[in-house]
Design a binder for these strands. Sequence first.
DNA 1: AAATTCACCGAGAACGTTACCGGTGGATTC
DNA 2: GAATCCACCGGTAACGTTCTCGGTGAATTT
Lengths: 338, 338
Amino acid sequence: MRRHYATIKDIAHALNISVSTVSRALRDTYDVSADTRKLVLDMAMKLNYKPNFNATGLVKNSTHNLAVILPGITNYYFSTVFTGIQEIAYSHNYNIILYVTNDDADRELNIIRNLSFSSLDGLLVSVSSQAGSCDHFQEIIDDGIPVVFFDRVAADIRTSKVMQDDYNGAFEATTHLIANGYKKIAHIAGPEGLTFTDSRLNGYLDALSKHGMPIRKKWIIHSGFTQECGESDMEKLWKLNDKPDAVFAVNDRKAVGAIVMLKKKNIAVGKEVGVIGFTNDPMSAIISPSLSTIAEPAFEIGKKSCQLLLNHIKKKNFIPEEIILPGKLIVRESSIRS
Amino acid sequence: MRRHYATIKDIAHALNISVSTVSRALRDTYDVSADTRKLVLDMAMKLNYKPNFNATGLVKNSTHNLAVILPGITNYYFSTVFTGIQEIAYSHNYNIILYVTNDDADRELNIIRNLSFSSLDGLLVSVSSQAGSCDHFQEIIDDGIPVVFFDRVAADIRTSKVMQDDYNGAFEATTHLIANGYKKIAHIAGPEGLTFTDSRLNGYLDALSKHGMPIRKKWIIHSGFTQECGESDMEKLWKLNDKPDAVFAVNDRKAVGAIVMLKKKNIAVGKEVGVIGFTNDPMSAIISPSLSTIAEPAFEIGKKSCQLLLNHIKKKNFIPEEIILPGKLIVRESSIRS
DNA sequence: AAATTCACCGAGAACGTTACCGGTGGATTC
DNA sequence: GAATCCACCGGTAACGTTCTCGGTGAATTT
């Protein structure tokens, strides 16, 4: 059976003093002499006392718990963001309750609805890709719960947001392809309606028009984020009469899918068809030819959003901030013709 | 400012009935008429009532929180295990508090020490690789907290454990190399002292002796789990006078490192030197030549350990179980000579 | 018609902690 | 020497919920 942990009352009883004094001594606040404080601390150690967070949470109306809601954890980007979050939370003695939605909007809604805000100090979320309405987030924010969005942000909600510079990253990636002599550049995009999908699409489009390159609707394909999606997108592109000679993919997994498909068709990646991705997933260095990409500051995004959330929690009426962190072009083999 | 959520008292007051009745109605227990139950439920909905888990946790001495302690989350294996855990926890309405140790023994200890068991129903843990003494886990178990180990288990602690069949997987991998004509098989191992490192080493050794193959101490190299470690291990092997003609790596990341190093030296992976890994990380299918490996049932391990933990929590005096799930040989290019 | 049963409800204590307020006795002030 | 101050400590209520017990009035039994 579960043993009963020593409480503050046990300490008080053992020392023959009052619970209030013990409470004050343990928290090192005012109105307690050095002698009794030492007595209490020693006894607490001896009895293996551990504070009951339910009790403190009940009276202080604040636990040290943060909720993190992610579409998934089994990929480089989100797991790295999470590691960044964890790093900050750990150093500030906050615990993280992690929920993964599997990119399922219903599940996301269900999680939100069942969230117990009485035992939560704040919320970090990257929305599910199929998430339609974001009313449920607005409700939470209206209730006064600090919320920070990252990566996949909900555009029309006024709260703090942290993201990479999707537009400029995409612009740079496309420009890089142009600079390397590719003339007919396609875009393998993510699902429509997601903020960052749109930003990367716009970066791609603006880079093309700035350099007077042709824009063709058929060269823009929307689908999911997986490698398999990348493969079938590439296959579709290759069935076109007017084939592209380069591809900018919305993320590395799809870019890897594109490369896999091109290799299947015995097309020389780089020389014949250029490919560039987005993320800098470790896979991009492993695949051959290695994949050029825009490195995302995933770890930094995690750290920054957690810091923002903690500020939000500490200062009431904290003004929402939007932070955009730059990416970095990484040139490898898949995008150079030589 | 943070708004105050409606409590059970507010419902009682609005309906002019007692709190006890409301409490019973909400939990759908005995002694409440269908009429008042409906009244309560409607009012709860109207007031947007959310139960305060701190309060219930305080009186029932049980929250619906599980703690998971992992060495890291940014790799395929652990993130997949976690997804399995999450799946079961979600369907049983349990929350997961996730801690990552970064393979740091001190940090692991620190996390354990600060764990608040008053707001935790159980613990799932894969120990840090440098973890020396496991006394801190024994203490927790002695205190009656349900604990389940997975993957990296602490051998001398009596509690439930879930792991893949490391010994037989290693045996099968090594046998596969032998069957493909490799004669001088080396092993790139993990850090010493870890249970599963030892098991895989033993499977390797037994497969060799069963088939009368030579065993050489210099062909067995212990180091960390990263790709970089795999690269330098391979480099060491290649400096030997008596070079091996095949390598069984303790995991895919190290195997990938070995392949990268071999490619750097322009050695034909597969034909000249065979390589096989362990895990079935997605990377193993991406790298070329593609990597043969033993697929681990990571998702199943996550599900199983969470189920076990929940059983442990529900039934007091639950007898510890040890579950070993089989792996599966996946043959790709890196281990066939043809 | 009296006794028993039953369905339903309410009062109060308890969980472990903190916040607030008041009360000591001794030292300091005028 | 009386008044004031201060360091220190204790009692009590409160946080939101569940649990145990006892108490209604109506229905059923004998």
